[in-house]
Design a binder for these strands. Structure first.
Lengths: 146, 146
DNA sequence: AATACGAACTAGACTTTGTCTAAACCGCTG
DNA sequence: CAGCGGTTTAGACAAAGTCTAGTTCGTATT
């Protein structure tokens, strides 16, 4: 009944290569595998989740490489690092501007279209600083049954 | 030249007691010390910083109690937990609505008056969920010296 | 072909933050 | 003064992420 959910829906290899190239990242087998997994669709994955997914596939990529690669991707802007869950970092493959809705009780993270939220104008920033990003997080909980 | 910066400027004990009472928290020696320190002014402290400050003073409060107390304060809304630095949680003694400016290179965290930022209207939330909070974080870095 | 070199990968030790557990303590009430 | 709930404590533990030293890999050079 169940088709293995991963084997079928990885991002095609050539597209992953293109993504890395666009961001000036040298393509390696491990980086491509991580990119193919992460960019298969819009999603938020933690390092541990990626590590787990990879070992479900044949691919074994070391823990250190997963962390190194995610840091590299984040630095070059290929993925967006999302700091929401105090226990772990998420990596967001959706590069379009958007915000986040976080379910504190399930740990689930959803995208929110940016249209609904207006950042009027940012305060005059301290001179010599540049904005890396503006993150809006809406934290919700399931209302207590009564 | 330097007066010990902590001993002098703790929140008066009676005010700390009032704060706890307002939030339905039983007053204990340890909780009062943490509250007096945290609410001495508007600031953002991590658990480790609080632990360090306390041991500078005579007071020794155990690590477990500091964590327990901060979690208790956060649950009852006495302090605001700020998730910004992926490595540690900050506790914000400023209860007025406001946002945050985070200097990624120094780890420094600043308040931003809320007036400048408009949250237009939140998207229709999933039924049965309640909003715990909306956090806006502006991440900045010192511009590279060229 | 053989060598050299830099970049990337790996296993595993390590660090840090935060949680958990079991015992001790403290103030009350019966 | 015994019992009881709530609080504190030390220290063990767990989980995420970093670091180090050694290996591997691809490419360029001779």
């Amino acid at each position: 009944m169940n088709v293995s959910p991963e084997s079928s829906d990885l991002l095609p290899r050539e597209q992953a290569e293109a993504l890395l190239a666009q961001h000036g990242i040298a393509a390696t087998e491990q980086r491509l595998e991580i990119a193919r997994l992460l960019f298969a669709r819009h999603q938020h994955l933690s390092a541990e989740q990626i590590l787990a997914q990879l070992s479900l596939q044949a691919s074994r990529v070391s823990k250190a490489t997963v962390y190194n690669t995610l840091n590299l991707f984040a630095e070059t802007g290929l993925v967006r690092e999302v700091i929401i869950d105090p226990a772990k970092r998420f990596y967001d493959s959706n590069l379009d501007p958007h915000h986040h809705l976080f379910h504190t009780d399930t740990g689930r993270l959803e995208d929110v279209p940016p249209a609904r939220i207006q950042i009027a104008d940012l305060p005059g920033l301290p001179a010599g600083t540049e904005v890396l990003g503006v993150d809006v997080v809406i934290r919700v909980a399931t209302r207590k049954p009564q």
